[in-house]
């Protein structure tokens, strides 16, 4: 699974993207965030602050942490967008 980080979250984590081997028990966006948080203190701090981290699965916004993730997906974590 490819994980991508953007904007200040990319700085906090220290990488723009990484390939991970998805553990079998990780099947939702929420579980994936928790699993990544256990590996990265920078990500953990942001992930545990409500409303700070947004998620896209396969380049589509998801707002439900119960949304499914599976091997082969591209999952992106980023702060609220500020374009325009």
């Amino acid at each position: 699974m490819r994980i991508r980080y953007f904007a200040w979250l990319r700085h906090r984590v220290g990488t723009a993207d990484e390939e991970i081997e998805l553990p079998a028990e990780v099947t939702t966006v929420g579980a994936l965030g928790d699993w990544l948080a256990a590996r990265s203190p920078g990500f953990k701090e942001a992930w545990q602050t409500p409303g700070v981290v947004r998620v896209a699965v396969n380049q589509t916004h998801v707002t439900d942490t119960a949304a499914a993730v599976k091997t082969g997906d591209e999952v992106a974590f980023f702060p609220p967008v500020t374009g325009g």
Binding site: F6, W8, H61, F78, P79, P80, V81, T82, G83, G84
Partner: peptide, 14 residues
Amino acid sequence: LMDWLKTRAPFWKL
């Protein structure tokens, strides 16, 4: 279009 773009299009300003 502008209102939705500002809250949905994945851009970040530094």
